[in-house]
Each structure stands twice: as C-alpha cells, then as structure tokens.
C-alpha cells in the first residue's frame, strides 16, 4: 500500500488487439454475472477513435456495468475489453490512465473553486500546469461558465456543477472518454455548447462512450448507437439505420383528456404505448387519412385534447426494441 515508488516500471500489459497507433475501443463477448443475473451478456462492440458511440437502454439494462468494467471497478466474468494494444481488464492502472470518466452522480467538488477543480483534475491526469491552465480557461469560456469560475462547488446549481464535472472529465481527455448522462440538469443553451465540446473530442481523436437515456438528444449527438436490453446488445447502428425499419410508417400521438380510458385502437394501428396522457402508436403511411379522421373524432368527442401525426423517431425504434418508454432525466439505477 505505502510501498515506495518502483524505480523499474512494470511492463505494460498489452494485448495483440492492435498496433501502437490503433486506439480502437473493443469489447469482445463481455459477460458479467451477479449471482444468476447476467448484467452483461456476451456484449461485443467497437468504437473507433473520433467516434461518438451511444449505448442506450432502460434502467438496469447493463450500461453502467459495462462502464464500470471498462474503468476497472468491476471484473468481467468472461470476455475482453481492450483499448488499442492495452488490455483494460488485465491492467486496471492503464484503464484509469487511458479512460476519462464523468460519472452519473455529481463530482465531489463542494469544497473546490471551479477553476481549481478543473485544473487539479487535469493535473491528476498528468497534464502540465501551464497546459491545464490554458485548457481550463478555454473550457470555461466555451461552456459559458465565466461567472462561476471562482465560486465554491457547494454554491453551484446542479446544472453548473454538472458542467464543471464535464470539464474535469475532458480537461485532459483519455483515449476513451466515458460520459454518463452528461447533460443532466444542464440548461438547453449550455447543452448545445456541451455537445459541441463532445464533437470536438471526437475531432481530436478520442473515442467517446456516451451513456444516456435521452434518446432524442442522443440521436443528434452520436455517430452510432447501441441498444442494450437486459444485458444484451439488441441493436446497433447509426441513428438513421436504427429508424430504417420504421420508414414506411408514421407516428400517431394522441394527448388524451385526463381521466379518460385508453380508446380501443383500430386494426390499422400498431401496438400502442401509453405514458401518462400520451398514447403513441405506429401506422402505415397509406392509413394516414383514416388515422387523422379517427383522431379528429376522438378529439371532437373529448376523449383526446389534441393529436399529432409525424415521422417515426428514434425513440419509437428504441421502444420497439426494448418495449420500454424512456424519459428525459430519469434516474438510472442501472445494474
């Protein structure tokens, strides 16, 4: 524990996963079991440098388990995780140095000044004082955090604290940057600024693992998505390709009048999902006029307050794949 530093650095634990300049993040047949529960069940994926990759999934899907194994907090039951030539399972020290991590919970910065927290995080990641000072100033400027730069962490709102945590994670990014719900509590304007920084990470060669529930936001921000459900990777692809199966369909949404029962659906409607007063179903394009008449009748009869017909979204594809409804800002509680 308190042994003096070793003068002879141990040889890095490497694998034959790739050449020295290859920084692809690879997960191969990863399985993690807790007693009889498979939190990750033979997951295989790869994220190229520069790519923003978004594992999506409902609570308990296994996203956090995947992240914790990547950064060396959990050990896989079987399978491999590599970043370039480094085997992250065999060498957790390498995992911690090569991966930057923004956890879903707030960073422990209540006693830190904002600039100090970001600079120290960069110094801990091995950057020089001069470099980290410049980069911190740049991030504070880019994310419009100037008015809080000298504030103590415990005085910050949840959204600002979240942004400071984001800066701490990326002030000196690893080859893999893991962001777990980075926009929680962040206002819409600064969300946009945050996404620009995420894109900048990709442009500078970082692989970004963006864990989120927020399907619609992920659609705009990621290069590729993976849907994880009950520990398994059930779909993977670009946002457009994920929606491809729904291209000949439209999305009919009814805002039901509070207190009314779910109306019986006509045969032309697909399976419906009701969340609160919202009833969403898929219909074929050919049935659009029929559906509009039906929805208008319900509105006239007072069953629904209004309705909307539009293109299928990624969220619809996600629901189809997982049979769950995702909500913005849900707590994860992920396995």
């Amino acid at each position: 524990m308190m042994s003096p530093p070793s003068a002879e650095p141990p040889a890095p634990s490497t694998s034959s996963a790739g050449p020295p300049d290859d920084w692809t993040f690879r997960v191969d047949a990863l399985t993690k079991r807790f007693a009889t529960l498979a939190a990750n069940d033979s997951i295989t994926l790869r994220v190229e440098p520069g790519e923003v990759y978004g594992p999506l999934g409902p609570n308990g899907a296994g996203k956090s388990t995947l992240v914790k194994q990547t950064i060396g907090l959990l050990k896989p039951t079987s399978g491999r995780i590599t970043l370039g030539r480094f085997d992250l399972v065999a060498d957790p020290d390498a995992a911690r140095q090569l991966c930057s991590y923004l956890p879903q919970v707030q960073m422990p910065i209540d006693s830190f000044h904002v600039v100090e927290a970001i600079e120290l995080a960069g110094r801990i990641r091995g950057a020089s004082a001069r470099d980290v000072r410049g980069r911190t100033a740049s991030l504070i400027d880019s994310l419009d955090l100037g008015e809080w730069k000298d504030a103590l962490g415990h005085t910050l709102s949840g959204g600002v604290k979240r942004l400071v945590g984001f800066c701490m994670a990326i002030v000196r990014p690893g080859r893999l940057v893991i962001l777990d719900e980075p926009t929680n509590d962040v206002d819409p304007l600064r969300r946009r600024l945050l996404w620009e920084e995420v894109r900048a990470l990709g442009a500078h060669g970082c692989a970004v693992l963006l864990v989120t529930h927020n399907v619609l936001e992920a659609e705009k921000s990621v290069d590729r998505l993976a849907v994880i459900h009950k520990g398994r990777l059930v779909a993977e692809g670009t946002p457009s390709s994920m929606k491809a199966a729904d291209r000949s369909q439209l999305r009919l949404q009814l805002m039901l009048t509070p207190g009314t029962a779910t109306p019986a659906l006509s045969p032309w409607a697909g399976p419906a999902v009701r969340v609160g007063h919202n009833l969403v179903t898929a219909i074929a394009e050919a049935d659009a006029s029929t559906a509009i008449s039906w929805a208008a009748e319900l509105t006239s009869a007072g069953v629904a307050e209004e309705y909307a017909l539009g293109a299928m979204t990624l969220e619809d594809a996600y629901i189809r794949l997982t049979s769950h409804m995702s909500g913005d800002g849900d707590d994860d509680g992920d396995a």
């Binding site: 070793s6 890095p12 020290d93 140095q97 950057a127 990014p173 080859r175």
Partner: peptide
C-alpha cells in the same frame, strides 16, 4: 496541446 488524448501509460517514481 492539452486536448491531445492522453495516450501513454506512465509508471515509475
């Protein structure tokens, strides 16, 4: 310079 992803594993004294 500092945005360049950290790409080495440093060990030692």
């Amino acid at each position: 310079s500092v945005i360049v992803p950290h790409g080495t594993v440093e060990r030692g004294a």
